[in-house]
Structure formats: C-alpha cells, structure tokens
Write a protein that binds this DNA or RNA. Sequence first.
DNA 1: ATTTTAATTGTAATCGATTACAATAACCTC
DNA 2: GAGGTTATTGTAATCGATTACAATTAAAAT
Lengths: 334, 334
Amino acid sequence: MVTISDVAKLANVSTATVSRVLSNSGNVKKETTEKVLEAIQKLNYQPNILARQLRKLETKTILVVVPDITNTFFSKVLRGIEHVAIENDYEVLLGDTGNNVERERGYLDILRQKKADGMILLTARLESHLLEEIAGEFPVVLACEYLEGSTIPTVSIDNISSARKATEYLINLGHRRIGFISGPLNVILSRDRLKGFRQAMAQHNIPIESFLVQEGDFSFESGYNMMMKFLALDQPPTAVFAANDEMAIGAIKAIKSKGLHVPDDISVVGFDDIKFSSIYEPALTTISQPMFEIGKKAMELLIKLINKDQLEKNQYILEDQLVIRETCKEYVSK
Amino acid sequence: MVTISDVAKLANVSTATVSRVLSNSGNVKKETTEKVLEAIQKLNYQPNILARQLRKLETKTILVVVPDITNTFFSKVLRGIEHVAIENDYEVLLGDTGNNVERERGYLDILRQKKADGMILLTARLESHLLEEIAGEFPVVLACEYLEGSTIPTVSIDNISSARKATEYLINLGHRRIGFISGPLNVILSRDRLKGFRQAMAQHNIPIESFLVQEGDFSFESGYNMMMKFLALDQPPTAVFAANDEMAIGAIKAIKSKGLHVPDDISVVGFDDIKFSSIYEPALTTISQPMFEIGKKAMELLIKLINKDQLEKNQYILEDQLVIRETCKEYVSK
DNA sequence: ATTTTAATTGTAATCGATTACAATAACCTC
DNA sequence: GAGGTTATTGTAATCGATTACAATTAAAAT
C-alpha cells in the first residue's frame, strides 16, 4: 500500500509537508507543492482515511436508523438526508431495523464506538431514558417521530393538527360515522394522529364509538383487515381515515372486495402521500408530508450539533398539506 | 474519553492484557479476566473502533451503491444484503446515486480510501475499465447488473430467458402485435430483456415492427408516455411487455386514460414483482425476481472475496418466475 | 530440588495519518 | 551586514487500539 511516507520519500520532503499539501493549509512553497503533487500522482496515492479519522477523532460518517427501508416514505426522507450529507462531505451509514426494537438498540453501539459522528433516528421505539442518555453524549436528531418532554432536536410535521385537518375535511363533507385505523399505539406519532382525530370529532360534538377506532401496524395488510372489521358492522362507517397510505390502500381494497365503491359508498383519507398514492386508483386523498425536506432539515440540524453550533430551537415543525384527490365525496344519506 | 489504558490502569494490568480479554483470545487467567471486565464495566469502556480498524486495516463495513433507493426493488435487495451483513458483523454504508453516473464514480473513492472492505454494486453504468480496475484491487460484487466479458462476480437472474419467457406467454395467448417498452438501453440488463423479447418473437416467426419497441427509463412516467405512443398508432399493439413494473403500471394508466381496459383490450406484462404490483388493480402479471435472495447471495460472495476464499464460479444465476395475475388475456380478434 | 515446559503477562513497535513545536531559510529594514 | 520578522520545512509526539516478542510465573517432569 502507498502511504504518506512513500510520497514524502519520493518528493524528498517530510510527511508533515505532504500532509500540509493534502490539507491545503497554505504554508507550503509552490515548487514544493508541485513536487509533492507529482509524487502523489506518480504513486497514485490515496490517503488512508482511517488513520486520519483516528488522529482527528471524527469519521465524517453519520448513522441513519430506519424502521423499514422498503417503505418509500422513509427512503424519501433518506434521500433528503443524503442530499445534505453529500454537500457536506458526510457519508451515510444505513441501519434498517425491520421494525425490530432489538436491532434499533444495537445500532446505538455504532455511536458509542465512534464509528459515526452522529445519528438521525427515523424511529424512536427505544426506552426514552436510553435515548436521552445517548443524546446527551452524542449528536442525535429525531425525524418524524419524537420523544415526549425531551430536548432532543426533532424535525417533523404537527401530526395532531394534520390529523385534525383530515378529519375535519371528512366532517365538512357531511360524514358523521367516521372510522379511524391507527398506527401501532406504542409509537407516539400514532397516538398523535389518533389525538387529532379525536379533537376534530369532539369539536364538532360527534361522539366516537369505540369500535370505530382500530389499531393497525402501518402495513397494507392491517389496513385491509381493520377495514374488514368495519364492514362487518351493522352500520359501517361512511368514511375512514387511515393513519398512513399503505393502510388506506389496504382499506380501499377491502371495500372493493365487498363490491362497494370508493368514494361513492365510503370515503377514505390516508396519511404520508407516498408515490403510489397518486398512481393507485382511485387516487388517494391524503396528508402530504414533505419527506425530502424533513430529511434535509434533520441532516442540517445534525451537522450543527456535530459542529457544536447553537440551535435556534429544538422542535422544527414543517408544513404538511391535505392533498385532495379522488377518494372522498360528500355524504348523502340513502 | 475512556481508553484501553484507563482500563489497564484500573485493573492493574497492561493494555495488551485488556486487549486479549476483549478479543477472547484465550490465554488470560480467569481472575485477571474478571478484574479487567470489572474495570470495563466500571468505566463503561467502549473500544475505539477506528483505532482497531487502523491497526487491523479492516473496517467491517461494506459499501452498497444503489441507483435509486426509493425504488422498492432495490430496497428489497438491500434488505437481503443487510441480513447477511449483520449476521457477519458487517455494517452497510449506503450510496444512493439517484441514477447519476458521476455520483456512482464518486463512491469508488470510499473503497480506495479504505473506508469499506468491499462493495456491492446494484448499478453498473460506469466505464467498464474503471470497474475492472477497482475490482482488481478491491472486493467487488455486482448484483442485478453485470459487465460483459468481465470476471467480476455477479448475482442476477437470466434476464434474456426471463424476457423470453414473458414474451412467449403473450404469444401463447395468441398475441402477435406485441409492444415492448425497454429500459434505458445503455444498461446491459435493458438490452438483455430486449434481446429476450426479440428471441421469442423470432422463434415464432413474428416480425417486430420498429415502432413497437420504445425506450423508457424505468420510471412510471416513461411507461405512461411510451404507451401513449403505442396508442396513437393506427393499429396499437394487443399486448405490451414493459421491462419493469413501474413502467408497466404507467402503461396501464395510459391505457385506462383512453377508456380502454386491461386485459380485455390490451394485455400487459411487467418485470420485477415489486410489492405494489400485487396491490394495484388489475394486479400485474410479471416476472418475479428473488430480490431478497439476490441481496443475500451477493453479500455472501462479497464476504468470501474479502476473506480471500475461493469462489466456485463468477456468475450466479438465480431462479425467477412468471407470476400470472390479472393483466393478461387471450387475444380474440374483433 | 532442579530442570523443562506451558501458561500468563508485559514492553514496545506498529498501523498511517495530523500537528505542536523547533529549526531553518528567506526576506526586510536600517 | 546585523538584527528582526516571516515563510517554509522538519522532528517527533500523538490518536487508541493490536500483536510480535520478551519476560515472568506457574505447573509438570525428572
């Protein structure tokens, strides 16, 4: 392997000088610089990053922990992260947990072992004290999810108000029997969306029957299954709000399987606005999250944390949007 | 920061001994081991991986270069890679090129700089000599794509025979005017799928009119646009084979937009079997690639390369499968 | 009890860079 | 040209682990 001292020897200078040329620190004579560059060229020298990292105690790598990389929602956020990472000479280490808390925990060691300068979590199922502890010691940013009462910097939308907005939209269309398919209630953002739903219903004095709220797990299949439960009721809901798009599409599938139509028989609203939602038929009305922007912002914050810059605030709330497409319709009693 | 010498001091032994305890190399007395472990516990010591890596000249990290992480096809392959990686204590550095050759090239430096022990490419748009060169120096495995006449280890399906299989299926249904929407023809796997299509047609003595072959770019939109071209013909094809599922779905959208029906008016076959294909309506008939398996196999090969084990062969061809769903129908002349 | 052998531990070099500090060279100023 | 200043370069310590080799200790063999 070609090392810095090989270069130094060939160029007839010290390793210090080669290093200085490499880092563009300035104080090297032109001729010397040229000699060194020539030697570098001739030997096809590439600095060993490990050695540099060890010396500087930084890795220029950040870790992103994702609950499910095959979900396009997360891969879009990841894209935003990568975008900013590359601009700032960072590399992205990917940790896919496959929705497994154990693996989420395992990835913390990468930080502890200094294999990454910081971490962005797109999932926060871990015990909060664990997270707080590691965030006290290393730069950590939460994206999408957050931790109640925590000071860990967070980027997300306001899930409560978004869910309220979507629910109100259905209410304004005249719906009163509205079903809600929630995400797993052990994650806070599921609880928030449920809360938003409840708030909107309460505001309009519409009582919520308990069997009209069902807990899914964000998967297509769970959306299908929960909708089937709704359809088995004597009086099925006239509209359904699912806490993410995959479940919403699962619900539509279920409705279709009974020979009913969306939106004519039942209206459906989703959450996230993944790519498939606009392609599917009927095109899904949904809350659109700025996925790319969330990723970008999260990475920007992380870089600030790494550089020990001051943050203006800890909670960054980005704008979401209700995208009205084809799955909702005014309620007309039959 | 807590270092190995802090531990050594507290346990009253040398750093060498601590290191031996850490690596479980055996030759340490029980009592000493306990003393050391106790010190490690007490100080909450975590070895600095950078230092270890520098000394051992290995990173236990591999690089995966993906053309588009938001495509679920690639994220599934990635899942397979990660599965094997974790089992073998490797971490995965993700390189998403966003279909940009420049960025693909950039990621090679990560290998050169020893930031990763090896690389899996899910894309191979680079100049082949560059790839050959880097593969000569570092462990590299190609997955999905391959390089003509190259000895770089490769995992993929047999794209030619799969495309032939799909085409023959349409032919056997009675179709003669079959349109083909190819992927970008600068990537070999697109050319292979086209070749398979041509072979099947030739075998059945069906001439291919040039305007029945259109080049897309694997995106939903391009599938839509190319299908629109077909539909503008005097005699549109009675069946269409798209080189991936996204384009196939785009094509179906185009067909529907003209008030026509799939499969009654036009049959459609896709390629890949991404998750959405079974959810979409009509459910897509397609060639199913073993994405997870491809990823697993690729990582297994890479590990062998890294360990300098002998490979049995350079080309690993996995089984694909024609999945018949709802988008094809026998041709009946009208 | 002494020698031989095996088990355990320590010392110090090493991986390949960066950088504080020291040394030298080059350039001014009067 | 002496003295001072600045620019350039070199020496060697350093980052935190691993490991070859040496040294010591303990156990076994005679």
